[in-house]
Design a protein around this nucleic acid. Structure first.
Lengths: 152, 152
DNA sequence: TCGCAAAGGATAATAATTATTAAATGCTTC
DNA sequence: GAAGCATTTAATAATTATTATCCTTTGCGA
């Protein structure tokens, strides 16, 4: 069912230098067993069934810990606040995962995306948006520090 | 400077069935004159210099009106709340712009992205994430209604 | 086992966004 | 150009999402 035993989780934590706590384990199990792309709120709802006393803040903290360690990824690089894109014509984005800056790239600068397999039947594609994820010059010259979070 | 005259804005509004108001025009001008991908807060700060009495809620509503009409786009399809991606291995996303659902697509299902021109010097690419934007089967069968917002 | 740094719990604070509602304004019709 | 209705604004209030605070508890190495 769950797929990850306590000893595996223990090992995972040790590898990333994290303390093994009961709530972290429960949160981890919830995350791995939930379909799709769960939100902190959803995780909290599920986790509190096992640990009724748990706090939402704990869930947030644990999730951020996992993200920082690269154990999980974050769906959207640019969440947090609505951003308006004045550029109506199709284009792509160059995204710095450190400073979160977004630069437009012309659509013609990238070869058209091609599928190898057909998509789920009935899905109408409007356009392809390519996000080029990496580290911008400014960020990479400072701080050879921690690897950035992974974004998916 | 601004680039968009009042008559052009007027025409734009009429084409989309929007009333022409002073605040909308100021917000529109602010949006078109700001570099990058402005947030509602930033727009508000700029706009209030011209119309001190304006409300942040008005800015939000005007922006949404513009987004709904497709006059502008939205940088991120999935903003609003943090979503955890349990899938650590590189992959792409199938995104429905109506219901905002996100489905994972294996990286191998898409031909590797290729650049036609070189990126800004010094940008270290980590990975390419392809967002396939469109309308999922469920959403497209219901509602032949309004075209969805445009996402960039 | 002891001690301390790290983590958790409760809750307040802040940020981001949306809803409500009354007053003001745009727009159509005459 | 005025009258009247629909839309928009402004001013909150309310929600939602997230983070900080502060004190207690716990994990884990010495």
């Amino acid at each position: 069912m769950t797929g990850v035993s306590i000893s595996q989780f223990r090992e995972l934590c040790q590898r990333h230098g994290l303390a093994v706590t009961h709530q972290r384990q429960v949160i981890f199990e919830a995350l791995t067993s939930m379909p799709g792309h769960p939100s902190p709120e959803e995780v909290f709802e599920r986790v509190r069934k096992k640990v009724p006393a748990i706090s939402l803040a704990t869930v947030y903290k644990a999730i951020h810990t996992f993200l920082d360690s690269g154990i999980f990824g974050e769906v959207s690089v640019h969440h947090g606040s609505l951003r308006v894109d004045r550029n109506i014509s199709p284009h792509h984005h160059l995204v710095c995962t450190r400073c979160k800056s977004i630069t437009d790239i012309e659509e013609s600068d990238v070869e058209p995306v091609q599928l190898r397999r057909s998509l789920p039947a009935g899905f109408q594609v409007h356009r392809y948006a390519v996000e080029i994820l990496g580290v911008c010059p400014r960020c990479s010259e400072q701080s050879q520090g921690n690897p950035d979070k992974q974004h998916y």
